[in-house]
Each structure stands twice: as C-alpha cells, then as structure tokens.
C-alpha cells in the first residue's frame, strides 16, 4: 500500500492538481475539463487565465482522443496520461501518449516549426493552415499545436521515449503564466 502515499507525495511534489490516466474519449475530455474548471473557480482564478488553460487543455485532450485510436487498433495500447500542474507563477498542461514510431519525425518537425515562430509568425501560419487545409479524416484541422503556442505564449516542450519496436511515448508540456 506504500504506493498510495508515494503517488500522493509525487503529486504534491510536482504541484499536480489533476492527473488522469487511461482511455481518452470525448466524454472523458468533458469530465476532465469540468474538473479543471471547478478547481480554478474554487480559488477564483482570473477569467482570462482560465480561458487560456481551458483552450490549451481542449487541444491537448482532443489530440489524444483523435490519435489514440490508430494505435489502439493496431497494438491494443491506447492508455495515455494527462495532467495539470499549478505553481504560484504558472500552470503546466502535460500529456503523454503512445504513437507509432514513424510519427516521431513528423511530430518533431511540426513542433519545432511552431517553436521557431514568434507571435506574428504563428498568426501567419494559423491563417495559412485554416485557409488551405481541409478537416482530416480524424476531424482535426491541423491547427492544434499552433493554437497551443499562440494561447500560451510559450514554446511547446516535447520529448519521446521508446516503448518497443513499434511504439514511442510522446510527451508534451505547455506552460501558461498566471501573471
């Protein structure tokens, strides 16, 4: 039973206010959003900050929902993790989910592209994509990362950890200032 206390300590130590691990669906997304909103309301978080956190959360959660399926169908490994951390200075929105190895390069390239751009560059990229792209089969507009960077005003930190020959664990962390 030691792990209960350990997990509790790990959460406190990392300033985590919410952790969800498991299957991701639209219903789960709505529940997680509602919990985070209630949490922020409970200490009267400023509405502009709340909106930014909500925004980044939605894109992050819906990315996982959309891209879990293909892994699940192929390899029965669809479990992902989502967490929110909070310090006096900022919120952290973090996610981790398995993706096919082949996606690693594409994801890194797109995230690096977004991270290299300043405010005006991101605005331009957003407009280019929205004008010229169609909604994908998975229902994505290809705008999620750009929007997370714009709303947070920060770089999107990311990494990959190999799981096995076919899968890699994709981690993403976005900081949102509270000031």
């Amino acid at each position: 039973m030691e792990f209960i206390y350990d997990l509790h300590k790990a959460m406190l130590g990392n300033h985590l206010i919410l952790v969800y691990e498991g299957d991701f669906t639209q219903e789960i997304t709505k529940s997680v959003l509602a919990m985070a909103e209630r949490n922020m309301d409970s200490f009267g978080e400023e509405s502009s900050i709340k909106r930014k956190v909500f925004n980044v959360m939605v894109e992050c959660l819906q990315n996982i929902v959309k891209h879990c399926d293909e892994v699940e169908e192929r390899l029965e490994a669809n479990s992902a993790v989502f967490m929110i951390g909070k310090s006096p200075e900022c919120y952290w929105i973090c996610s981790g989910n398995p993706v096919r190895k082949g996606l690693e390069g594409t994801l890194a390239q797109r995230l690096n592209e977004v991270n290299e751009l300043d405010k005006d560059g991101l605005k331009k990229l957003y407009k280019d994509i929205i004008k010229n792209s169609d909604i994908s089969e998975k229902g994505g507009a290809g705008l999620g990362f750009v929007d997370m960077a714009r709303k947070s005003g920060n770089n999107l930190e990311f990494g990959f950890k190999p799981i096995n020959d076919e899968l890699t664990f994709f981690t993403l962390r976005i900081k949102i200032a509270r000031t």
Binding site: R51, F54, E59, I135, D147
Partner: peptide, 12 residues
C-alpha cells in the same frame, strides 16, 4: 465564449 481549432475551420 469558446471554440476549438476544429470548429474554427468550420466557422470559416
């Protein structure tokens, strides 16, 4: 009050 990026494409 809020829309996600997939909705923004449809708003356009």
């Amino acid at each position: 009050e809020y829309f996600n990026t997939a909705s923004s494409k449809l708003i356009l």
